[in-house]
Write a protein that binds this DNA or RNA. Sequence first.
DNA 1: TCCCAGGCTCTCT
DNA 2: AGAGAGCATGGG
Length: 278
Amino acid sequence: MYKIIFENNNIYIKGIEEFDLPHTLDCGQAFRWKCDENGIWSGVAGDKFLSLEKTNDGTVVLYNTTIDDFENFWKDYFDLERDYQKIRQILSQNETLKAAADYSYGIRILNQEPFETLCSFIISQNNNISRIKGIIERLCENFGENINGYYTFPTAEKMATLTVEDLAPLRSGFRAKYLIDAAQKVASGEVDLYHLRYFTLDEARDELMKIKGVGPKVADCALLFSHHHDRAFPKDVWINRALDTLFGGELPEIAQDYAGIAQQYIFFYARDTKLLTN
DNA sequence: TCCCAGGCTCTCT
DNA sequence: AGAGAGCATGGG
């Protein structure tokens, strides 16, 4: 377990295991974190801006925040209560999964805001990561709230008032109509976005797929990254390649309870090492 | 230039 | 129900 020290408006997380910032913040589950030349990460989640870094002794420092925000927001956001060492032990029963988990050391599954996550992965379809980031940034700058110079992700209620034409500055292509549909269905309550963690995985997936442009892959990303559905298993091009070449087509049975976490390890491993692109 | 990107919808069998 | 084209845009 880790210890928390609060000093000079900073939170010092001491003795935390399995928390690698580049792996966690740049593995493709979130799109608004950036690292500067000094290794300091900064980003926006919900209505909060945060800078953080990992120091040489392994302490993770959250700058300029409060105990209150840590306890009520960041602790859950960074999934700090979960025992990733235990999950690693389970997955390591399979040799290939062990290799992927070792390579991806320190990835944590973030618990992100549901509407932002849904829109982010609607934008992600048939798209590349650097361009996804640009579209999301323009979405926030154009329609989010400006708080001291940074922009929040727009709410469903705000976006529901917009038209496809209004989204032209995003240059999101055919995805604009999907974003509007998502905003309208969430804002009206036609899609119950905020109780999905209490649905079964199949029910939750069906609920999200009421939205145009949301298929099984986008739905599973939303369920994994913002609704605590650990068994969601988003299948994208990389995962399909990896399943075929490394696992004979299917995820090993032992990984089922933590399929989503295994998925992140495999995704990061496959994409980062490019071992599948020959 | 060309291929492809954390896919999905629509159409045609 | 399964296969395949088309989709907007731009990164590499």
